[in-house]
């Protein structure tokens, strides 16, 4: 349906999916976190934050809005030349496009990897529309993107061109570049400059709030994700620092105890309590690492299912029901259930 650009599957706006996409594109020490509020303190906890990806999902037609908030025109200006901006060419590539909008603007801090470095240097001199086209036509980027095609979704993709009733996604990335906060909206002609900021984590919340309010009331779902540094690596580094402090204090403590003097004993008590504090901090950090491990295990599980072809499982499950002589009763109950609810619209994704 996307003709010469090849097919791009729809991607769930899910942190596990985005994290794996980034990893598979070759960038390292980056992960994606879902945010549930715009509070700066939330962002502080997960620093470094490289950029935010804001995904809207709205029913076109329900609000009479094309999704274009309208009032603010983009301001393509010479001042934004250092911003990597690509226009959105096709709908389904949006997840990848949003990711690249952040990654390619933070290439100084992020290890992009060969694929993305090559793409960046190749497309750097192109105008925004050609960058979008280059992205859309990049086989390797598309392959990574399409690794998330659902085995059944190819049926629906081909079968059913997007209609007015389909959910439509739109994404906007927010990235600080050169001390200014930019809004990168692939439907606009250029980056939108939100001005100079010392601390973009403080200001971005308000900008997003304002942007949200520009959408019609019918906008019901949105999704905010942060592209951040590898949490486990950062936590690991903090644990190392704490460990170094603890061992230094332990040496000191032993020395003080050997000394035996009264002043030394008082000092030893203080050092001991300090070690205790550091130990509990360490435990806290380890808990966070464990949480991250659990999260990544979850990602692996979910992503495996996202890509899985369930037809063989369905087939074996039905055979199991037959073995147990429960298929027919189950079908009868299903028929009853079908009667009591309106005919379902085909699944859309």
């Amino acid at each position: 349906m996307s003709g010469e650009h090849g097919n791009w599957c729809l991607i769930e706006s899910d942190p596990g999916v985005f994290t794996e996409l980034i990893h598979n594109m070759g960038a390292r020490n980056v992960q994606v976190e879902e945010l549930y509020d715009l509070d700066p303190s939330t962002l502080r906890e997960i620093e470094p934050v490289y950029g935010l990806i804001f995904l809207f999902k709205w029913q076109s037609g329900s609000g009479g809005s094309s999704g274009e908030p309208g009032p603010r025109a983009a301001e393509p200006s010479g001042a934004s030349d250092h911003v990597y901006f690509a226009q959105q060419i096709i709908q389904n590539a949006c997840a990848t496009q949003a990711i690249l909008a952040v990654l390619l603007n933070r290439s100084g801090e992020i290890e992009l990897g060969e694929m993305l470095e090559n793409f960046r240097s190749f497309s750097a001199d192109l105008p925004p529309d050609m960058r979008g086209l280059a992205m859309t036509n990049s086989d390797c980027i598309r392959d990574v993107h399409n690794s998330f095609v659902r085995p059944e979704s190819f049926i629906s993709d081909e079968r059913r061109p997007a209609t007015e009733n389909d959910d439509v996604f739109h994404f906007i990335s927010y990235v600080p570049v050169g001390g200014r906060l930019y809004e990168l909206d692939g439907l606009k002609p250029g980056p939108i400059d939100h001005g100079a900021t010392d601390d973009w984590l403080e200001t971005v919340g308000g900008v997003i709030q304002k942007r949200m309010s520009e959408y019609s009331q019918s906008e019901i779902r949105f999704n905010l994700m942060a592209v951040i540094g590898d949490r486990r690596k950062i936590l690991g580094e903090r644990i190392s620092v704490v460990d170094a402090d603890i061992s230094r204090l332990t040496v000191r403590l032993e020395a003080l105890r050997l000394d035996g003097g009264e002043a030394s004993q008082a000092e030893a008590t203080r050092v001991e309590s300090q070690i205790g504090k550091l130990s509990s901090e360490r435990t806290g950090l380890e808990c966070m690492v464990e949480r991250e491990n659990g999260k990544f295990a979850r990602y692996r599980f979910d992503n495996a299912l996202r890509k899985h072809n369930f037809i063989p499982l369905v087939y074996q499950l039905v055979r199991g029901l037959v073995e147990k002589n429960t298929l027919r009763p189950a079908m009868e109950r299903a028929a009853d259930a079908a009667k009591t609810r309106p005919r379902r619209a085909p699944p859309s994704w």
Binding site: V314, L321, T326, A330, A334, A338
Partner: peptide, 25 residues
């Protein structure tokens, strides 16, 4: 009818509890 009404966790309980059938899954 919908497969999701047939292959419900409840309907599948006996299948999933059966070690031999699990082996095929």
């Amino acid at each position: 009818i919908s497969l999701s009404d047939v292959l419900t966790p409840g309907n599948l309980r006996a299948v999933l509890d059966d070690q031999q059938l699990r082996g095929a899954l």
